[in-house]
Design a binder for these strands. Structure first.
Lengths: 144, 144
DNA sequence: AGTGAAAAAATTGTGTACAATTCAAATATG
DNA sequence: CATATTTGAATTGTACACAATTTTTTCACT
């Protein structure tokens, strides 16, 4: 049993619990998001727009770590649901500007209870959550 | 600005950095996994088989937090690449048994350098990595 | 002004991820 | 022993996720 054998075990790789944990938590969101007819990706998109109201696809992608290949279809679905409007920037027609609608604003009320419900499903102490938070953002920052 | 407004900010939800960080690290694997013609999902599947040699789909899914809907196509691709063999358990034909092949075993040598390369891309101190590791596995354990 | 490079979305193609359903095999029960 | 239930994979359908390419628009430079 060499050192490399150990390194190749699933349980010794930091990426795997990260990958699995992210999926499991997203799964926890599903019943709550189903109630407001949003997927997780649509939800985090709306979260940015609840705060910023308006943003082009590129900037939105930088916030969400997603590219246009992922965002274009997500935004089209949110437009069909009338939560956002998609239009070209008159000053630079290359930019597609996403703007939240009144219906989109209204959805925020229904969504506002989700974070509390989720934190009840994810048993982390205040301290662990903030430590986790710190390490993850530090890692995100130093990788991109 | 209510309390709920803050809770709905992307930056205040623990799930988002988890989700983004997992994706970014998987992305870091890509160039190294490309060299051995594996996707990340195929790689973690092979990691289990490098250690256990043989396993049915259900148990594999429990290790990887994946269901048959995801695993079936992944395993078919690994079989085409000759890294595994799929066959039914003679004692219980419902069980599909996945067995690593000689080629699959050989692939382990090429893969053995990946963990070291990844840890160079992911700047975490020994202590942070183990703290992160601990919190993630604790969370995984208490959620499922 | 004309042309080539750059930028931003959209498109295309591949590979998950997962809920829901189906199917076949095994087990339990009357 | 026949049927109902359960179990494990596979299938179906929807929704990302992302690399690579294409399209449109703008910018830079001659």
């Amino acid at each position: 049993m060499s050192k490399n054998d150990d390194a190749l075990k699933l349980e010794n790789q930091i990426c795997f619990p990260l990958y699995a944990c992210a999926k499991e938590i997203v799964r926890k969101y599903k019943p709550f998001l189903d109630e407001i007819d949003l997927t997780y990706t649509q939800y985090i998109t709306m979260m940015v727009l609840w705060e910023k109201k308006q943003m082009n696809v590129k900037t939105l992608g930088e916030y969400l770590y997603l590219d246009s290949g992922t965002l274009t279809p997500v935004l089209k679905k949110l437009e069909v649901k009338k939560y956002i409007q998609r239009s070209r920037d008159k000053n630079d027609e290359r930019n597609l500007v996403v703007t939240i609608t009144t219906e989109g604003e209204a959805l925020k009320e229904k969504a506002s209870l989700i974070p509390e419900k989720i934190s009840q499903c994810v048993p982390l102490s205040e301290q662990e959550a903030s430590e986790l938070y710190r390490i993850l953002y530090q890692t995100l920052g130093s990788m991109s």
